[in-house]
């Protein structure tokens, strides 16, 4: 099977416009682990015959890591160029698998002239289910203990707590919560541009602390909804030498797997 991934440019050539633009993000495009999430999500988009397109080589970093690192100038350079591209294609609706892209596009682009309806993929998948386009049943995950790690930029930053949990419940899985969850969720340690630097000296790494909480729940799967969280949690689990017992997966991957896509 091959993925069907149209670009906005190719659709435009044919005089077409997609319903929604899938913003892949830098991790989703280049990082080996995150690419799997991207592909899983596209499988679902293809499966549901969703009319979508990607920007492909016209996409560029949203500027989030630059802004959080303190480089407002670089952030705005990136933002304004992306907005120029998006507006050239009259984009109105965007879905993204990265909470950082989601937050930046949704909250920080409007003031710079980029006003779109922006959805996180967990919200989007929920709508697909609601509209009857996607049917999800337990299958492989029926009865499995799954815990959900709230990405800071999805949860606390934008108050999206229920969409990913609703999806996990659709898998007939047993959703168990960590000690810190929802608005009190503990960061994985990647946000604020930390992903790209070494941590300051301390007693331990943040992902080690967080995965300890996850292991405590005795879950077999840690569900994530962010490519950076996925990486951080996977590393944390390795640190605890639990990689045989605990898997870290994006909600989109869980759904694609459950449907055997």
């Amino acid at each position: 099977m091959k993925l069907n991934v149209p670009t906005l440019a190719s659709l435009k050539e044919q005089g077409q416009k997609p319903d929604v633009v899938f913003w892949v993000g830098c991790a989703g495009s280049f990082d080996d682990r995150a690419k799997k999430i991207t592909k899983a999500f596209v499988k679902i988009l293809n499966h549901t015959n969703t009319s979508f397109a990607v920007l492909g080589t016209e996409e560029s970093c949203t500027g989030d890591p630059a802004k959080r690192a303190g480089n407002e100038f670089l952030f705005q350079m990136q933002a304004l160029q992306n907005i120029e591209t998006l507006n050239r294609y009259d984009v109105t609706k965007i879905v993204t698998t990265c909470p950082h892209c989601f937050n930046t596009l949704k909250n920080e682009y409007p003031e710079l002239g980029g006003k779109y309806e922006v959805l996180h993929h967990t919200q989007f998948l929920k709508t697909l289910i609601k509209e009857g386009k996607l049917k999800v049943e337990g299958g492989t995950y029926k009865g499995k203990r799954i815990t959900f790690h709230d990405p800071c930029y999805l949860g606390r930053a934008n108050s999206v707590f229920e969409a990913p949990r609703d999806l996990i419940q659709k898998l007939d899985a047993e959703l168990v919560e960590m000690k810190s969850c929802r608005a009190k969720g503990l960061c994985c340690g990647a946000g604020g541009a930390q992903m790209f630097k070494d941590a300051e000296t301390g007693e331990k790494e943040i992902n080690v602390e967080r995965t300890a909480e996850a292991i405590e729940t005795k879950a077999e799967i840690i569900a994530a909804a962010c490519p950076f969280c996925t990486t951080m949690m996977t590393d944390g689990i390795k640190h605890h030498k639990q990689e045989e017992r605990v898997k870290v997966m994006d909600v989109a991957e869980l759904i694609a797997n459950a449907k055997d896509l």
């Binding site: 009190k184 503990l186 604020g192």
Partner: peptide
């Protein structure tokens, strides 16, 4: 530089 901009402090 140690901040992850996680907003936990703001929230709580």
């Amino acid at each position: 530089w140690a901040c992850t901009s996680c907003n936990a402090c703001v929230e709580v």
